[in-house]
Write a protein that binds this DNA or RNA. Structure first.
Lengths: 248, 248
DNA sequence: CGAGCGCTTGACATAGGTCAACTACTGTGG
DNA sequence: CCACAGTAGTTGACCTATGTCAAGCGCTCG
């Protein structure tokens, strides 16, 4: 089975949908020209594995569209997601040849890949890239630490609420109009992926979603479509001090 | 009460004990000269708070000696440690004015501080610093993700074993001689700090330590001194695939 | 139609949390 | 030197949130 032939209705970095937020966001036109030369696109179908932990990884990449998961697995099969990669997020570590985590496509996925060696050289020579990379890495570190609080100290109900708050906020991109009170989105994750992300079993995920529905915090339309009638209420359930858990 | 007057038996960057690993590790002598001008030392006693979450923070710093903890607290008081800062680790985020986490001195602590604005300018103008900072941030991100697996999926016994494995390895600095089978160190953390780090209560920490002692995985001398007769056995108890949980 | 997958629900088990008592130190003041 | 109080840690009894195991539903695909 071949990678999905995702429609790509753009051709050059200038029209790229993640131009403003990806690792190349700060590049000047001449720097983009250099990037163009070493970049190529790859598509994956939902469910496919992009890289296995321990594999040699000869590229780094930006997520262009779709969602990818970064996860870690213990010998006995317990797994923990350690990152949820949305469009513009960066995959791979410059300077490391072997992938530390498994990367899987959760939905159909398009990535903009750069061959590793040339990209590493560019990081060294192009401050616009290395600065942006540092900034993005610091953001990821903050997100990871936020997640540590969730994993270590929150209850199952708070965990689910937090996840919905994050997905809700990120899937209503820059609707700057303050915090809209009502919100609607499709869950891009299976119950199992949610469990792996939250450190819960699939059954607990299911039960807590049902419970949140019963108390009116969320409304479901089918299994995947979620409506949040009162976003502040959701944040309260998440145990968050009103910022939805995404420090910037 | 004033900060502890810790003995500092070095005076310039050239003799600094963390010269090889800190954010300044890659600097040339002339670059160090610039750093010298904006640096100053601060000491804290065990237990003191270095910065409160939400406070304005006008410096960034390297830990020179002692141990600091980074932690996050929810409104109702639940707290989670999100970082254990050992000598050479970096504190603060360039580009951010407000501290996102609380920083406390767990032992007596000496930090090499840089005023924030001049340091940020240096990061922009000195590739040796920005590169090292990126590298250190990526390492921290890896450590945070390793910790997410621990918090989300490990049992209490595995958590304690993992913590001991990490402290054990880091406190036997570069004894390159492979993995010595036996190992000995002092715990720099109270039971409470361990609980906050591992997402456990103090009682569970205590019980699991007792249990590990009973099964002969560890030996105690007083409350704080730990001896590991068989390090491989400890790693096995930690559920780690033999690397002690510190990817580099 | 049957198989398989994603999800839900129930009954039950248990790891870890909670509450409370107790020990062992350590420092303070009389 | 002796209370004394305060801090750090341990242990026990009990409780509950979450995991485990098992059954079943409602899709979609072949």
């Amino acid at each position: 089975m071949r990678p999905a032939d995702t429609v790509m209705n753009f051709s050059s970095c200038g029209d790229c949908p993640i131009r403003e937020r990806a690792v190349c966001a700060r590049c000047e036109p001449d720097e983009l020209d250099v990037l163009e030369k070493i970049k190529y696109y790859r598509s994956y179908e939902a469910g496919q594995t992009v890289v296995w932990a321990g594999d040699r990884m000869d590229f780094v990449a930006s997520v262009v569209s779709g969602i990818a998961c970064l996860s870690q697995t213990m010998e006995d099969g317990r797994t923990q997601m350690v990152g949820l990669l949305l469009p513009s997020d960066f995959v791979g570590r410059p300077g490391r040849a072997i992938a530390a985590y498994e990367v899987t496509a959760t939905t159909d996925l398009v990535m903009c890949c750069f061959r590793k060696k040339p990209f590493e050289d560019l990081v060294e020579s192009t401050p616009a890239i290395s600065r942006r990379l540092l900034e993005m890495t610091l953001d990821e570190l903050d997100a990871a630490r936020e997640w540590m609080l969730l994993l270590g100290r929150k209850t199952a109900r708070e965990k689910i609420s937090s996840l919905f708050a994050i997905i809700g906020q990120r899937s209503t991109p820059f609707s700057g109009e303050g915090m809209r009170t009502t919100l609607e989105f499709d869950l891009p994750l299976t119950r199992e992926a949610m469990g792996d992300y939250l450190g819960l079993t699939i059954e607990t995920v299911s039960r807590q979603i049902t419970a949140l529905k019963k108390s009116g915090v969320i409304e479901l339309d089918g299994k995947r479509h979620v409506r949040i009638p009162d976003f502040q209420r959701l944040l309260a359930e998440a145990g968050d001090d009103s910022d939805g858990g995404m420090p910037s």
